[in-house]
Design a protein around this nucleic acid. Structure first.
Lengths: 248, 248
DNA sequence: CGAGTAATTTGACTCACATCAAAATACACA
DNA sequence: TGTGTATTTTGATGTGAGTCAAATTACTCG
């Protein structure tokens, strides 16, 4: 709507930072692009849509018109089964692209909801597709992101079908840790963006089980947890834990 | 099983049926293309690679150079965890495209193995990407297939984390049924391409559980099963079963 | 700040499915 | 066509995590 505004980028809150100057450009779509291509991308992006905690970014079955890049905050996506149950399919952090599971379909395959106050860039898909076929690197990058998402989902399937509650939670903590790390944040001390309930749902566990495992990990000196504040005390032990029983 | 009839009508054995005359063109890549585009696709496809049962089409971590379209037979893909366990991530039937989880990466994210004698068309990715640049419809179609695969995997996650053994197996049988149907084969009487073991692995169950559920279904008059030969006797009941407990 | 509500934790009990063991079939191939 | 191997089935038993219930702690907002 207002892509012309981004001409001036000020180190100011609420400023419309162009892709070129966005601190996430090394994680997000611009990653693959040279400067001139980035300008074109810039023009189709609607910046700074803000979502409050709990607010939906899009809803399953609603018309699909845009993907969203997370700028700050965190998003969860979930699918609702015919019997009405929710299954969280992913957590998205700054730099991640949300909505790829609906690419080239006309309705959303999932629901996306903000876990905290979150700002996103909206990228209309028709324009993204147009750009992609004049910009080979962009097409390549989208293929890459989508295949990455397939792989993530396969990893989740492995976790769900092969691992114990402890292994799943250790794996999730380590995954979050490495994602924070890639964003230049502490990999050992961070704040969980999601509630225990969401962790439980994502990992196919009961909330009570998640809670119990957290306290068990704490008692074993693997982590320190106060609410959402998490400190990974013994990463090596967590890694061994996450691997599961290696003799199997 | 018998789309090979089309192959036969071309001169000499090992005949290269063009995409244009392939009976699977309405399921496979050509679906999205007009005649002139299809010719170009045709030129990059290596036809009629044959795999015997158990033979690997590609292996996890091996260099990724091609996707494969299944012509006849069946393929399973699986990922191997660091602890050496296999998780089957999908079953692929004629018309399906295998290898999308590795698109735009340089190594395969999974292993693909033939469940029975299988023939495939090999499509080099670099050429596929090049074609996609110049053919918007092809690009669009690939996006579509990849997002479809993300969704399939999400569905699997739902199954693994929310459903009982009976519900999972009912869902799998119905999924196979509809896939046979789309290929103009009987939706109520078919031969399972995979062993009980593969079903168990895919659905995150023990073989013994799969076997027990099959006999239970048979005793309840839902199916008739003799080895891999399956007849769906009461589809409605299976559908209700697959939905899971609706009051939850 | 304090009341009301939501999120998290803890405990007691249950059960669906895994595991272990072994028999019954099916299948490959000499 | 028979023999050895792999697959499938059936039975007995154990357990990890779910469920139900209730206390505790953390938030929200007037």
């Amino acid at each position: 709507m207002n892509q012309s505004i981004n001409v001036r980028q000020m180190p100011n809150s609420g400023a419309k930072t162009s892709c070129q100057y966005c601190s996430l450009s090394n994680l997000c779509l611009p990653l693959a692009l040279d400067n001139s291509d980035m300008k074109k991308l810039d023009d189709v992006v609607n910046r700074d849509r803000i979502l409050n905690r709990g607010e939906q970014m899009f809803t399953q079955s609603a018309p699909f018109r845009s993907c969203f890049a997370v700028k700050s905050g965190a998003i969860k996506t979930s699918v609702i089964t015919e019997s009405g149950e929710e299954q969280i399919t992913g957590f998205f952090m700054p730099g991640d692209l949300v909505g790829l599971d609906s690419m080239s379909d006309d309705t959303h395959a999932s629901t996306a909801k903000a876990l905290e106050r979150t700002s996103v860039c909206e990228i209309p898909v028709d324009q993204l597709e147009n750009l992609a076929h004049v910009m080979p690197d962009l097409q390549h990058h989208i293929f890459h992101l989508m295949s990455q998402e397939i792989r993530n989902s396969h990893q989740l399937s492995v976790l769900l079908s092969k691992n114990t509650a402890e292994e799943r939670i250790a794996a999730l903590l380590l995954s979050l840790s490495s994602r924070f790390h890639r964003r230049k944040l502490s990999s050992t001390h961070f704040s969980l963006p999601m509630a225990r309930n969401d962790i439980a749902n994502f990992l196919g566990l009961a909330v009570e089980t998640v809670s119990r495992v957290f306290t068990r990990f704490q008692n074993q000196g693997l982590i320190r947890a106060r609410g959402r504040d998490i400190e990974l005390v013994n990463i090596e032990a967590l890694q061994i834990m996450a691997l599961g029983n290696p003799q199997a």
